[in-house]
């Protein structure tokens, strides 16, 4: 019999490996020159989409826990959030490296000049403190209350991320709108749950 600790460890490895599957597929395609005619644009876009997907998955944990009583999901939330940060870093690296030729001044002027880049950059910058304070040590140091408050930043950065995606697209807004709808549901759930809590309980 496996102990609960061993099961958790096994499941975490499972989640970890699965979260790396997209990267492995991209690496495989890259080695076989299957990333299309414009690999830079393709990688930048895919890393951006993966970042948003992991942000949404992270945000889905709380509604799933509360709605279905799947409390165990909380144990995987940190890893999923860190994967959002990981793919966000790859997204930023492809953009700064290839689109901006590693030029800091060019990146800064681009952020100022292009609102959609500004939204993306703001979203990424907000991810950094969340990644830094993701450890147990930091949680204790900050105290649960302050830590929770800080991590509410994910609501803002998720919205900025979706706006960033929406603003790049020329006319076919299906995917950005889809991300927007999912985000609206996940955030709307919180507003709803908060409202329920605020109301006095009905007597039977």
């Amino acid at each position: 019999m496996r102990t609960a600790q061993q099961t958790l460890w096994f499941n975490k490895v499972l989640v970890f490996i699965n979260a790396l599957v997209p990267l492995c597929m991209l690496a495989w395609d890259g080695m076989h020159r299957q990333l299309g005619v414009n690999p830079v644009e393709f990688l930048t876009r895919i890393f951006g989409v993966l970042t948003l997907m992991f942000i949404l998955i992270t945000l889905a944990i709380t509604p799933l826990r509360k709605q279905f009583g799947w409390g165990f999901l909380i144990k995987y939330r940190r890893m999923l959030g860190l994967f959002a940060f990981f793919y966000g870093c790859l997204h930023l690296i492809t953009y700064i490296g290839f689109d901006r030729s590693w030029s800091l001044s060019s990146t800064i002027s681009d952020v100022i000049k292009r609102p959609f880049i500004a939204f993306g950059m703001a979203s990424f910058l907000m991810l950094i403190p969340l990644a830094i304070t993701s450890t147990d040590k930091m949680l204790h140091r900050l105290g649960a209350k302050r830590w929770l408050k800080l991590h509410k930043l994910i609501y803002i950065l998720a919205m900025a991320g979706v706006v960033h995606f929406y603003m790049i697209v020329k006319s076919d807004v299906f995917y950005p709108v889809l991300f927007g709808v999912v985000l609206a549901i996940l955030l709307g759930y919180r507003v709803y749950a908060h409202g329920q809590k605020a109301l006095p309980k009905k007597k039977n």
Partner: peptide, 19 residues
Amino acid sequence: VDHPRWSQADEQRIGEYKR
């Protein structure tokens, strides 16, 4: 003359990495 959402000052030639 920039596009409202991006610069038109440079371009990426397909098959090359540097703009």
